[in-house]
Design a protein around this nucleic acid. Structure first.
Length: 266
DNA sequence: AATGGGACCTGCGCGC
DNA sequence: TGCGCGCAGGTCCCAT
């Protein structure tokens, strides 16, 4: 899915397109993506509402209509949003008062839409760790010291730090020159500091270039991100390392494909 | 506490 | 060409 930089990109675009817009109708093509409440209540609860705020928390998008009314969107793996004309392939289309549509696209239909009176009380939200941009080096170091898990799955653990996924965790570890199979509490002080900086660097770069479009992900305008061309290890198995030219290797860590440079990452 | 497997879904590319 | 398999940016749930 869209990880923090992709979701942040969409969030900023939604602010421009959706603030003060009224939703006048909703077409639901696939009920399975609507998790709460039932589809009729979902539709009736939103039609006639005006968007007052757009929020991102971790990889979640939250559209606020008024006090006690929030649309919570989790794009999971293949979800994305497309603004403009009505799309045939959309799972849900929100018709706006300006004649445009906000289309919820999701090939695999693993994403989730919820309409709730609050979002902060969601079990998933309550379980989230801090945003990467809100955590200090000292706090980061403290967390790593307390964990015996491998560093790569740890970076992807939303209850530890919220927002990174399988792309940016790999990129951060490459930028910090750390082997993804290292145990978190075995990293030395320099490595921890490098990883902290690297994490912020790759996430900021991802936001700057409007995300990575490795597969079908597109931003709100239907455009691909610019970050996938800048990825140094993700999806680059057997290609030369951008630093040392040795071939990038791919391995499985915690069930997830992981690319790294065996020469640069120690 | 940490790890592994399967589940949820669809669709793509690959080897045979 | 056709088919089966593995794999895909996420998360949850269960078992060990």
């Amino acid at each position: 899915m869209p990880e923090l930089p992709e979701v942040e990109t969409i969030k900023r675009q939604l602010e421009k397109k959706m603030l003060d817009k009224k939703i006048v109708n909703i077409q639901i093509n696939n009920k399975t993506v609507i998790k709460e409440p039932d589809t009729e209540s979902f539709k009736n609860g939103i039609v006639g509402e005006t968007v007052t705020e757009v929020i991102r928390r971790a990889k979640l998008l939250i559209i606020k209509f008024k006090e006690d009314k929030f649309l919570i969107i989790h794009l999971r793996i293949s979800g994305w949003l497309l603004y403009g004309k009505k799309e045939e392939k959309s799972r849900v289309s929100f018709e706006l008062s300006d004649g445009n549509f906000l289309n919820y696209m999701d090939q695999r239909m693993l994403g989730e839409l919820k309409l709730r009176r609050d979002y902060k009380d969601l079990k998933f939200i309550k379980s989230l760790g801090p945003e990467p941009f809100d955590i200090s080096l000292e706090e980061f170091a403290k967390i790593l010291k307390a964990k015996k898990t491998k560093i790569k799955p740890l970076l992807m653990d939303q209850t530890v730090i919220a927002g990174m996924g399988n792309i940016y965790a790999q990129e951060a570890l490459f930028a910090a020159q750390i082997d993804p199979t290292n145990t978190a509490n075995n990293l030395n002080q320099t490595q921890v500091a490098n990883l902290y900086k690297a994490m912020l660097l790759v996430l900021n770069e991802g936001i700057k270039y409007k995300g990575s479009s490795v597969d079908i992900y597109r931003n709100l305008e239907g455009d691909k991100g610019g970050m996938e061309k800048r990825l140094k290890v993700y999806g680059r198995e057997n290609k030369p390392c951008v630093v040392c030219k040795e071939p990038i290797k791919k391995t499985l860590i915690g069930g997830r494909g992981t690319c790294f440079c065996p020469n640069c990452q120690k």
